[in-house]
């Protein structure tokens, strides 16, 4: 056990699984880097942000290899390889690039099992960075997990910390279904204690990072940290919150969400993806349908506006959900009074 960054946790998960299972391979644009360069240096980058650094050096060019900048072909190849005996981990770099290969994910990998009558297994992991807060603007900042969550046949994982990332990635690699594993690019230097050995965190089991009586906050990925921060502040002003990190949006631990809402009667959902048809609307619909009687106040969503992610720091800060916005939302549901009580 030692302090590890989000980046190290992911690197370690890949390393441990590649040591354990020779069928696990890693491919993507510059996951190693340097191939074909004039210097002859190999493993030059280890990913654009260094997440896969050193893996090619340990496992060789047969198991860790660069792809051309050609998402449709290599994401499709990863799907085809998964269906024929390998366990590929393909890196899509920025999740925004899914536009170049969505067919291979949506119509191929996600559909094989059902469409072929249960006769296919597609143990594929697609890793990609998501999220705003990096001044990367509209084509490199999206949080597209609702898109994948919408597609039956895919599993979708959004780790909220280094410990979570390692255990969830190992689980993803061992899973026999296609898994979209989304890493918030702003979190790579976050650190916490992470065991050195292999461990797995099951999909579909939410984690309660805070437990309280007044308001349930459901938050995804990086938003869990903001929700924790808000909950800790609110605690000091006498409002106690439960914070739910669903960990996976598909499968989604609806049971835990409903149980917590039944206990608190109030719900705030924090989702950094665009507000229409996102996870916040999904969870809101779930609770409205299944736990209407438990609600003491309207459900509040803390989400960005329906705009592309802006570039300028001032606009981007305005765009993002944060602890202040969550705190305000929690206070607003706490101060709500039903009409008949008013």
């Amino acid at each position: 056990m030692s302090k590890k960054s989000f980046r190290q946790a992911i690197n370690e998960a890949l390393r441990l699984e590649m040591r354990r299972d020779p069928r696990v391979i890693l491919m993507g644009e510059d996951v190693a880097g340097g191939r074909g360069g004039t210097s002859g240096v190999t493993d030059a980058w280890g990913g654009v942000l260094g997440v896969t650094k050193g893996l090619q050096t340990e496992f060789g060019e047969d198991r860790v290899f660069d792809t051309p900048i050609s998402e449709a072909s290599y994401i499709g190849a990863a799907a085809g390889a998964a269906a024929t005996g390998l366990r590929p981990v393909a890196e899509l770099m920025f999740v925004d690039f899914v536009g170049c290969c969505l067919d291979q994910i949506m119509n191929q990998a996600a559909k094989f099992r059902y469409m072929f009558g249960g006769k296919a297994r597609t143990p594929l992991v697609i890793r990609a960075m998501y999220g705003a807060g990096f001044n990367a603007a509209a084509q490199h900042s999206q949080a597209l997990y609702p898109l994948f969550t919408h597609i039956p046949g895919l599993k979708v994982v959004i780790p909220s910390s280094p410990y979570e990332a390692k255990g969830l990635l190992i689980e993803a690699i061992r899973d026999d279904d296609p898994v979209i594993f989304l890493e918030n690019k702003v979190m790579y230097d976050d650190e916490e204690d992470v065991p050195d050995g292999s461990y797995t965190i099951p999909f579909g089991e939410a984690n309660l990072t805070r437990e309280g009586d007044d308001v349930t906050i459901v938050a995804f990925g990086r938003m869990v940290n903001f929700a924790n921060e808000a909950a800790d502040r609110l605690e000091k002003s006498g409002i106690s919150c439960t914070v739910i990190d669903p960990r996976t949006t598909s499968p989604l631990d609806t049971g835990t969400i409903l149980d917590c809402v039944a206990d608190t009667g109030r719900l705030v959902i924090v989702d950094e993806s665009s507000p229409r048809c996102n996870l916040a609307t999904d969870v809101a619909a779930l609770v409205a349908e299944e736990a209407f009687d438990a609600l003491k106040a309207p459900i509040r969503r803390v989400v960005p506006p329906h705009t592309p992610v802006p570039f300028s720091s001032t606009l981007e800060a305005l765009y993002m959900p944060n602890a202040d916005k969550i705190e305000a939302a929690v206070k607003s549901v706490m101060s709500y009074r039903m009409k008949e009580e008013a």
Partner: peptide, 19 residues
């Protein structure tokens, strides 16, 4: 899907090669 197969076949070929 028209054009769906060729990328998959790259993957299957990769499996044959690596396995």
């Amino acid at each position: 899907i028209v054009g769906g197969g060729p990328p998959l076949i790259c993957g299957a070929a990769l499996s044959h090669k690596l396995l």
